[in-house]
């Protein structure tokens, strides 16, 4: 009996060692490109090309970063933050609204509407460029960061509704029924029960859509033109011309672009995924 217990314990320890080994290996694979990105951001153009991309930089030199920051970086940064915040909040709110009836109600056109929304996931982004460009022109939004909010929200809707609907479907019927007996109406039910319980789904979507919007290039590129209205992914082109590109500078820009996201994820991931649900279940 005791032997058997020991055996399982040893087995489980071995399993952990193996698992940790793979975990470390995966972590190395995951962050190596990031490390090289940072390393190259400290180099000089010629240094990078002669010594190679994978060599250590000669010295820890922040000249590139200083130059980037002294440029228009903060302007782009603020634009990006503003667009991201507004689009993300609108997107998550309305997607949650839409997922509620799709997951918990029975009504006539439900199947059709759901299928249509899912089909919208299959749209190739590039075919929307010309129609959306025209719309932005006629709404007089062209060349302003507000032109980006519509497409950013709309492109995130299909996937968000799809995921949230699947999350909300998993909430046990009993909870809802109990609340209904208490005389809770459909609207209140959404705000006080369904929405809090869908938080893990919402947080996944916040991460996914947030990253997409932060790195979004093609709409930002087509719908704005003046420097004051550019977002971060466009900042790269000050160092990229027809025949030449200053890769280390670009790497500095990209490092500065990704850093806020990493910091946000480090501080928020626990709250985003676990903390919120724990609260919801208790309530």
């Amino acid at each position: 009996m005791e032997n058997g217990y020991k055996m399982t314990k040893i087995k489980s320890r071995i399993a952990w060692v193996i698992a940790t080994f793979f975990a470390v290996a995966a972590a190395i694979v995951a962050i190596t490109p990031f490390i090289f990105m940072v390393m190259n951001s400290f180099k000089e153009k010629f240094e990078m090309l002669t010594k190679g991309v994978f060599a250590l930089p000669d010295k820890l030199d922040f000249t590139n970063y200083i130059e980037v920051i002294q440029g228009n970086f903060f302007g782009y940064f603020l634009n990006s933050v503003l667009v991201l915040a507004v689009s993300l909040i609108i997107l998550l709110m309305i997607s949650a609204f839409a997922s509620y009836p799709l997951s918990r109600f029975q009504f006539g056109m439900k199947g059709l509407i759901y299928s249509a929304i899912v089909a919208c996931m299959s749209i190739p982004v590039h075919i929307t460029l010309i129609p959306i460009f025209k719309m932005s022109q006629s709404m007089r939004l062209y060349d302003s960061i507000w032109a980006l909010i519509g497409p950013y929200v709309a492109m995130g809707i299909p996937i968000s509704v799809f995921i949230l609907t699947s999350f909300m479907e998993q909430i046990p019927k009993e909870i809802e029924e109990a609340a209904a007996i208490d005389g809770c109406g459909k609207v209140r039910m959404f705000f006080s029960i369904i929405l809090p319980m869908a938080k893990p789904g919402l947080s996944t979507l916040a991460i996914y859509n947030g990253v997409n919007m932060w790195n979004e290039f093609i709409f930002a590129y087509t719908l704005t033109q003046s420097q004051g209205n550019r977002t971060l992914p466009l900042a790269v082109w000050e160092f990229k011309g027809q025949y030449s590109m200053n890769t280390p500078m670009i790497m500095s820009v990209l490092t500065l672009t990704v850093l806020p996201m990493i910091i946000l994820f480090v501080f928020a991931q626990d709250k985003l995924i676990k903390g919120m649900t724990a609260g919801a279940v208790k309530g």
Binding site: P101, A116, A154
Partner: peptide, 25 residues
Amino acid sequence: NTNCVAAIFLAPVIILLIVYIFYPI
């Protein structure tokens, strides 16, 4: 009542999808 609530909850998403996705399709 259910239909009514459903319509209200679905409206913003449907409007945006019509403008930004159905129309381009």
